[in-house]
Computed example of a mutant assay.
Amino acid sequence: MTFEYELSVPTTASPADVWALWSDIGSWHAWDPAVERVAMEGHFAEGAAGTMSLVGGIEAPFVLEIVEPGARFLDRLTIGDLVIRIDHQVSATDGGAEVLVRTTVEGPGADDIGPMVTGDTPRALEALTGMAEKSS
């Protein structure tokens, strides 16, 4: 079973300002309401792994599967039999950037769990772009 979700939002921030927040795992809790804390071994690069502590006491191991500095990263979380991939992309536009987040949930119950996983995405992107705009 697979669930897919995608959301794209414009911002007046530059791609570099968005990337600065994405690549700083210590800031994730400040803009993503589902995240309490993130710990990662090594640098923000492909293959780096860590643990994400989510609201509700959920601990999820994650791996950065793709990292294209300044443009894109894809992280994979594993929670029991579920695999959650979140693809984050930012691209320049006239006067700012376009931020795209694409989430795929695979495994038993994905259609039921997916909406819960992605429910905070609009608020997370609003907070992320707001913080990025303030720093630009």
Rank of each mutant, 00 (worst) to 15 (best):
A92V: 03
E46M: 02
G50P: 00
V35E: 03
S53Q: 10
L54E: 00
E98Y: 00
E4M: 05
P69M: 10
D94M: 10
G47W: 06
R85L: 07
A127C: 02
I84Y: 13
Y5R: 09
E36H: 01
R102E: 14
A132F: 04
S8H: 05
P10Q: 12
T118E: 05
E46W: 03
T121E: 13
G109M: 04
E4F: 07
D75V: 02
F73G: 01
S8I: 08
A92M: 04
G56T: 04
I84F: 13
A60P: 06
G56S: 07
W19C: 03
T121K: 00
T118R: 02
G95D: 15
V101H: 07
L21H: 10
A60Y: 09
T121G: 00
P61S: 08
E126K: 13
W22E: 03
P115H: 12
P122M: 11
G119P: 04
M131D: 08
T93P: 03
G56F: 03
E68K: 07
L77I: 03
E65N: 10
R37T: 01
T121W: 02
R123W: 00
S135T: 12
S23C: 08
T11R: 01
R85D: 13
S136G: 15
W22R: 01
T103R: 06
V101T: 14
G80I: 09
F73T: 02
A48V: 12
S27F: 00
A110G: 10
E98A: 10
T78D: 13
F3I: 08
